[in-house]
Design a protein around this nucleic acid. Structure first.
Length: 742
DNA sequence: TCTCATTGTCATGAA
DNA sequence: CATTCATGACAATGA
């Protein structure tokens, strides 16, 4: 019983998950079907964009839960926006997830609550306010990232926001993770934030609609503290650190404002040539480059000045640790950049939000110092920097790349990505644990868990039973079940094979129909003890179903034959049988029906009519017989129906598990691709640097990376061109793909 | 006594 | 049209 119950609930939950996963499944298929595509996605991001879109859609629906009629329009609106942004950001590299998350959180309050109330923005200006805002965000994000990662990975990537705590949300979070990865590969921070914001906005709206918003908002302030705590050790640090580093590197590379994009382009182009050629990803790379450019541009617009002032490639540790000493600008750079991006994103989102950016932007500067402090206090800046930025990497980024060769890819992706990826891996591996057992068992058990065929279930059951029996030593039950299953597979006559002459037979038959299910439960539950428990229960069940059996018990005198003989005629048995007799049997006996209910029910129509013709039966008797037949058939039908239902649920559960497995596997593969991609990027960058560094002008002087860049031409040649030109070209290229996609 | 799960039964629609 | 089956809904029963 308990096992059953548990199983059902479990199954339902997973079923829910499955539903949520349905959207994902498509992605999985794409992944599975096309081998190259994944990599392509990674680099290009177009497919990832699709997935993202789907994810978003899914998320929308999911977030919507019971979508409010009110939110529908907004949803569509946001979806459109989102799609646009996604298209834009197809190939951008991921922004530090932490940052993004923080923004998301931050955004919500602004968009929803403060959106109408600029005052909140003012509050942010105060140091405390800033902590509340950013701190909570970071905290949430970090908590999500860490816990979320671990959990996600455990659950196959669910980074469920604690707020709702729904399975669907977890799923969504998983999707987010995937998405993030996509973003890492090709999507820009903006996109990421944007999407998250949208999500959050949606969620927030829902919450608001539900009336929870107040709680959440109010709670956020309180939660912020807790979140801050979480933030300290969090990986979140790394992300912000990376971002500033990246920016700084860009600034170094490009003293002039417009430079950074050009550099990126240049960098990317070589990448394309070197790495892409094998994959024919040149176009993709260009897209990515263009996106990068866009990103850089945006950053520049928001906080370009500050960024430039910032020291090149400073890890967060330096920035934040030095924050008090160093000019605010440096500290600010990160936050401002992020904030700027947020503001922009907001503008994209909705008119309501658009008003916010202004306030936020104004508030941003004041916030910065507070942020730095908060960050310092909250984060072990140095530690984080060390963790996330291996000294070697830092050195390379700063020294080799220096100002000239900011490696957008390497900078953002490599470090943060690696860390994140490693986390992902760990999480994934750990994530398997919960499902692992079941999955493994399933893998051994049956490869084709996806088939919904009901007929399949009996066989699988029998097999499963066999396995279970071995473990639980329920040989008798297993044997009975196997026989039962075989008969059951034949459907119609499952429990009522023939005339039902003996109790034993009856019991066996009774068990037949049900045992499979229970055995299945046992198997599904993956608990050996449950299997043991199953046996007694099965027996019980079997007894219940004996109603079909014809004669017995008290009235056995009337219908004596087999039952009495077999039983040995004991009072107990009589009582027992009497109890076992179904109402129809009692009625039949009362009406002196000359044949067994089994026959009445199971005989083919022809034989049944024949049988009726043999006896002179009254109208009442005939009516009763017909009722008995009808009820009996309906009873079996009901049993079959329920069994089918159960099988469906079980199969769905299996499907969910399979999908989860696939998902986890795909995540791992993705991580692998990311790793390889990162390595390729590094190689390309190093090559680029080497080549560029060896170039000399007519005077024998090296070219300034800020003024010149290597451009990869379509014909495979590499050109040294002024940055301005490179920048323009990059923009052009960037637009093309966008237009195309649009 | 109440709740829950299981099972049987009925009504209904489809084949 | 009769029969059978499937299934949702309800009732009866037992734990």
């Amino acid at each position: 019983m308990l096992s059953l119950k548990k199983y059902l609930t479990e199954g339902l939950l997973q079923f829910t998950i499955l539903l949520s996963l349905i959207g994902v499944r498509v992605d999985v298929d794409t992944y599975l079907t096309s081998q190259l595509p994944p990599l392509r996605e990674i680099i290009l991001g177009p497919s990832s964009a699709y997935t993202q879109t789907q994810f978003h859609n899914l998320r929308n629906t999911l977030d919507g839960y019971g979508i409010h009629p009110k939110s529908i329009d907004l949803d569509n609106y946001f979806t459109a926006r989102r799609l646009l942004s996604q298209v834009r950001a197809l190939d951008r590299f991921q922004v530090p997830t932490t940052e993004v998350n923080a923004w998301l959180v931050h955004r919500d309050p602004e968009g929803s609550v403060s959106g109408s109330q600029p005052s909140s923005g003012l509050a942010l200006e105060s140091s405390s306010g800033l902590q509340d805002v950013t701190g909570p965000d970071n905290g949430v994000r970090e908590s999500e990232t860490e816990q979320g990662f671990s959990e996600d990975l455990e659950d196959l990537g669910a980074v469920a926001p604690p707020v709702s705590g729904d399975l669907t949300k977890e799923d969504i979070d998983l999707i987010d993770i995937l998405w993030r990865q996509d973003i890492d590969l090709g999507a820009g921070r903006e996109v990421f934030d944007y999407s998250h914001r949208q999500k959050e906005q949606d969620v927030d709206k829902e919450l608001r609609d539900g009336g929870e918003q107040e709680d959440t908002w109010a709670g956020e302030g309180a939660e912020a503290l807790a979140r801050n705590l979480l933030v300290d050790g969090e990986t979140g640090e790394s992300f912000p650190a990376q971002f500033p580093a990246d920016i700084s590197s860009i600034t170094e590379a490009v003293p002039s404002e417009s430079e950074p994009p050009a550099l990126q382009n240049n960098l990317l182009s070589p990448l394309l040539t070197g790495t892409e050629s094998p994959f024919d990803l040149e176009q993709q790379w260009q897209d990515l480059m263009s996106i990068m450019e866009m990103q850089a541009m945006e950053v520049n617009t928001s906080a370009s000045e500050i960024l430039y002032s910032a020291p090149p490639g400073d890890p967060l540790s330096t920035n934040y640790s030095l924050a008090p000493n160093t000019p605010i600008n440096q500290n600010v750079s990160l936050h401002q950049a992020s904030l700027g991006g947020c503001s922009q994103d907001f503008s994209l989102f909705s008119p309501e939000v658009e008003s916010l950016p202004v306030a936020s932007s104004s508030t941003l500067l004041p916030l910065v110092p507070s942020n730095s402090t908060s960050l310092n206090s909250t984060f072990g800046s140095t530690n984080l920097a060390g963790l996330f930025f291996p000294p070697q990497l830092n050195g390379t980024a700063n020294d080799t790349a220096g100002p000239e060769l900011p490696d957008p890819l390497g900078g953002l992706l490599d470090e943060a990505m690696l860390d994140e990826i490693s986390l992902m891996d760990l999480a994934i591996e750990e994530g398997f644990n919960p499902v692992q057992a079941s999955q493994l068992e399933e893998e051994f058990d049956s490869d084709s868990g996806l088939s919904l065929d009901s007929s399949h279930s009996p066989s699988s059951l029998s097999s499963s039973e066999g396995s279970s029996s071995s473990s639980s030593s329920s040989s008798s039950s297993s044997s009975a079940s196997s026989s039962a299953s075989s008969s059951f597979s034949e459907e119609g006559a499952v429990g009522y094979s023939s005339d039902s002459e003996t109790l034993d037979l009856e019991e066996a038959e009774g068990a037949v129909g049900y045992q499979p299910e229970y055995s299945k439960f046992c198997r599904m539950s993956y608990q050996d003890p449950s299997q043991l428990s199953c046996l007694p229960y099965l027996e019980h069940v079997g007894h219940n179903h004996t109603y079909n059996m014809a004669p017995s018990a008290l009235d056995s005198a009337d219908l004596p034959p087999p039952s009495t003989l077999k039983k040995g005629s004991k009072e107990k048995q009589a009582d027992f049988l009497d109890k076992q007799m179904s109402r129809d049997e009692h009625r039949a006996r009362a009406m002196k029906i000359p044949f067994t209910n089994d026959k009445i029910i199971n005989l083919p129509v022809e034989e049944f009519n024949e049988l009726l013709s043999k006896y002179q039966l009254s109208e009442a008797q005939l009516s009763l017989i017909r009722d008995i037949r009808r009820r009996g058939k309906n009873k079996m039908a009901a049993q079959n129906c329920r069994k089918r239902k159960l099988d469906t649920i079980l199969n769905l559960e299996r499907d969910v598990e399979d999908l989860q497995r696939d998902k986890a596997r795909l995540l791992r593969e993705k991580v692998e691709f990311l790793r390889s991609l990162r390595q390729m990027k590094q190689k390309v960058q190093s090559l680029y640097q080497e080549v560029f560094g060896r170039l000399r002008d007519e005077n024998g002087r090296p070219y300034s990376p800020s003024q010149y860049a290597l451009q990869y031409a379509g014909d495979g040649s590499v050109l040294l061109i002024p940055r301005t030109m490179a920048d323009q070209q990059a923009r052009r290229q960037e637009r093309k793909p966008k237009d195309r996609r649009k």
